[in-house]
Amino acid sequence: MPLGLGCSARPGRAKDNRTGSWRVFWPRFDHSKCSKCGMCQTLCPEGCISEDGEGTFQPDLTYCKGCGICAEECPGGAIQMEKEEK
């Protein structure tokens, strides 16, 4: 018997919502100071920092809200928050 109640959403459809527009500051990654520990990727609440397979990390600015956790927690100080210019 089909259930008449409830509704469903396609998995991961939140991707339609480009939260990058919320940003005031954006994270600039200085790869020369990066020790490739991956802490930024682990601690990003958006899950929008990805690694290219060779240990280089890059944020996806389509979704980055600019919270600054990555810059705050980076042990090598390789990430700086800079004012977004729109």
Partner: peptide
């Protein structure tokens, strides 16, 4: 737990869900 959710920037609960 993918990006595009509407949590505040720096949300602890969003990070918890991802982990």
């Amino acid at each position: 737990f993918d990006s595009g959710h509407r949590a505040c920037g720096g949300c602890g609960a969003a990070l918890a869900s991802r982990l």
